[in-house]
């Protein structure tokens, strides 16, 4: 029942006149597609630069402030043998 219906609708859709493909379609598509590619490349490049700059800033900060050196001990070891 459903299959017959489906075939009927398919036939109906196939008999609707197919629209003509506009001549400028291909050029428009390539123009927009290239723009998308360029945008993606710019975004990727910006992300790389951000990562590199972040890394450099981190290294400079480490060199200047020495944040990973343990602070000097505040506990004196017990005095023995005198």
């Amino acid at each position: 029942m459903s299959d017959r219906k489906e075939n009927e609708v398919r036939r109906l859709l196939d008999t609707t006149p197919a629209p003509a493909v506009p001549a400028e379609l291909y050029d428009d598509v390539v123009r927009r597609g290239s723009r998308l590619l360029r945008q993606r490349m710019v975004v990727r490049r910006l992300m790389w630069w951000g990562a590199v700059l972040g890394f450099l800033a981190f290294m400079v900060w480490v060199a200047v402030t020495d944040p990973f050196v343990p602070p000097p001990s505040e506990v004196t070891p017990p005095l023995q043998g005198w």
């Binding site: 609707t16 006149p17 197919a18 629209p19 003509a20 506009p22 379609l25 428009d28 598509v29 390539v30 927009r32 597609g33 290239s34 723009r35 998308l36 590619l37 993606r40």
Partner: peptide, 20 residues
């Protein structure tokens, strides 16, 4: 079929994405 600006825009965008 002979006046389908929305469909054309839709198709252009979908194909541009496919191109990229």
């Amino acid at each position: 079929p002979d006046d389908n600006p929305r469909a054309r825009r839709l198709l252009t965008a979908a194909l541009a994405r496919t191109y990229a």
